[in-house]
Amino acid sequence: MEHMGIEPGRIHFSWVSSAESTKFVQVVNEVTEAVKALGPNNHFITKEAKVA
């Protein structure tokens, strides 16, 4: 995805076991931070059909 121009950091992958609630919270924080830093997604949004 990065290859076609989606910023790295918009897509995240992680591995959290069902017992790791602390890690879960930590990853949520990290992901939110990263996406916040990038700002709103401008690419790849389907625009609403124009109504004539």
């Binding site: 076609m4 121009g5 910023e7």
Partner: peptide, 14 residues
């Protein structure tokens, strides 16, 4: 060459 481009440029390229 494409890998070296910044995201915005890649987007425009494609």
């Amino acid at each position: 060459k494409i890998e070296a481009m910044p995201s915005e440029k890649k987007w425009n390229y494609f």
